[in-house]
Write a protein that binds this DNA or RNA. Structure first.
Lengths: 214, 214
DNA sequence: CCTACCGATCGGTAGG
DNA sequence: CCTACCGATCGGTAGG
């Protein structure tokens, strides 16, 4: 209930948004969806009157943007830091996916908002998010391209579709990975990486279509 | 318990919802999101007054449910029809993914609504959707289990995570597969299946970790 | 299918 | 941070 006092900021105009507001917004947006959550819901969760929110924030959209921008940035930073270019591509991929799952495990709800509600942002903010989002996808693109160039990865017919398979799988993780599960982020990451690197086929089995040819 | 059906044909007090309404709703919900679209937006798109909508529908949620229920059912039917149990598991998986992409290509916007907005349904409708959704996932589970039993697929350490990798990839497809692309649904399906069955690693290459061991 | 309208709620502001 | 309130818009209904 104790609402932290707002620090008198030097640059005045925009005070730092109190953490309670952001945290409650993450929780509400993740559970019910941004458009459905009213400012009165948020204010009630924070423990103040709805009008009072606006001495801390500029608008509802500002709060969403804050959550989404920080949300993606966290992934971009963690993944690009983990998958340094000097490592073998398959290891880089494994580390990238592990970084992804580690970030996820620490911020499931924020990730839901980040990857699931950014299209409710206005054109300006949305453009910025798309840019960050592109940077996120480019990390995996570079790993894949390096891998192919080095001969570690196959030269797949449709690299883009293959990459979107991985990215889609990662974007879906907040829907099923809950903190209540006993499995560690690393184990889940390795399961995903393993599927993407080695596939489902049993070793030396070959595809049914291939078996028919011989 | 009572599952809403609009299939009463004879003395139905409730007429079949006109196709224009459903089509415009799909378009608007897919583009802007269900909670953001007002009934006045929908009525304007249809070309009537907002009050007049209610001689065709019961409520806004009814329209969403119609879209979502039909949306999933289409996938369940197409996939289970394509992947018959008599075929080899890897071929079944390929056919299942192809069926998925074929349905997608024919209903991108409805799929966006189906997989992205169902949580806005009330508890009763949502329960029904979760059930259908489960059936959808179970198709892939059975293929995977059969494959492992027959020795065609590897015995992966975390089958559930591996399956959710595939399902996540498929659920993400409406975000990037647009009808304007020249690639056929089959080609995209095969790219995804190929990634899942054979992985990214070059043949005979082995993982970097494995290479270090020898 | 229309006009007219309902109570509720929305994001946000004024002025202390 | 509060009280009081704004105009706009929401899903839905009445009665033709």
């Amino acid at each position: 209930m104790a609402v932290p006092r707002n620090s008198r900021s030097t640059s005045a105009r925009r005070p730092v948004v109190p953490d309670v507001i952001v945290q409650e917004a993450i929780h509400l947006f993740a559970e019910h969806g941004y458009p459905v959550v009213g400012m009165r819901d948020l204010s009630k969760a924070v423990g103040i009157q709805s009008g009072s929110l606006y001495s801390h924030i500029d608008s509802k959209e500002t709060v969403l943007m804050l959550i989404v921008e920080q949300g993606i940035t966290r992934y971009v930073d963690a993944i690009s830091a983990a998958a340094t270019p000097d490592l073998p591509p398959d290891i880089r991929l494994r580390l990238a996916v592990r970084a992804h799952m580690t970030v996820l495990a620490g911020s499931i709800e924020q990730t839901k908002v980040t990857f699931g509600q950014w299209h409710y942002l206005g054109p300006e903010n949305r453009a910025r998010v798309v840019e960050l989002r592109q940077r996120y996808e480019d990390i995996f693109l570079e790993i894949a391209q390096d891998g192919i160039r080095q001969g570690v990865f196959r030269k797949v017919p449709h690299l883009k579709a293959t990459l979107l398979t991985l990215i889609g799988a990662l974007n879906f993780t907040p829907e099923w990975y809950s903190s209540s599960k006993p499995e560690s982020p690393e184990q889940m990451a390795d399961a995903i990486t393993d599927a993407m690197l080695n596939g489902l086929m049993a070793p030396h089995a070959g595809t049914s279509a291939a078996r028919r040819k011989r």
